[in-house]
């Protein structure tokens, strides 16, 4: 068990990062911390993907000569997927940050529970 974990240490670290990020996103009350958690979670996934594509002792997939042999290069597909994933992650972070700013401007706090309590109060006053 320990041997398997040690020999696949990249994947193990990636999964630990994923779980840390997941728990932070789920359980933290502060919006910025939640966002940091989300980015850690995504980083864990990207590390996992990159390590899947990496093959020890091979070169990056940049073809310099015409008669290239596929066996000399690492798998480029996961790297492409990671790039796409990063773009998605950045846009999600941007949207979430803009929403956090809107909430902060209105309620002067980033604590989700406090904001929720304030929205309930607002509603009662309206009714």
């Amino acid at each position: 068990m320990l041997d398997t974990l040690l020999s696949n240490y990249q994947e193990a670290v990636a999964m630990i990062l994923f779980v840390i990020g997941f728990a932070t996103l789920l359980f933290q009350r502060n919006l910025i911390r939640k966002l940091i958690g989300m980015n850690i979670m995504d980083a864990g996934l990207f590390l996992f993907l990159t390590s899947l594509g990496y093959i020890n002792g091979r070169k990056p997939p940049i073809i310099e000569v015409q008669e290239a042999v596929a066996d000399t290069y690492i798998n480029p597909v996961p790297s492409g997927l990671v790039l796409t994933g990063i773009v998605v992650s950045v846009s999600v972070t941007a949207v979430m940050l803009s929403l956090s700013i809107r909430l902060y401007k209105r309620y002067h706090t980033l604590d989700m529970d406090e904001i929720y309590a304030m929205t309930l109060k607002e509603r009662e006053e309206q009714d």
Binding site: M41, L45, F48, R106, Y107, M112, I115
Partner: peptide
């Protein structure tokens, strides 16, 4: 409206958890 923005944030958080689990499965 404040409460809708909050609902939007909560919706996004749940959905982000969902998408990341989906991506984990895909990976």
């Amino acid at each position: 409206v404040g409460r809708i923005v909050l609902a939007g944030v909560r919706y996004m958080i749940m959905n982000l958890l969902g998408s990341s689990l989906f991506l984990l499965g895909v990976v």
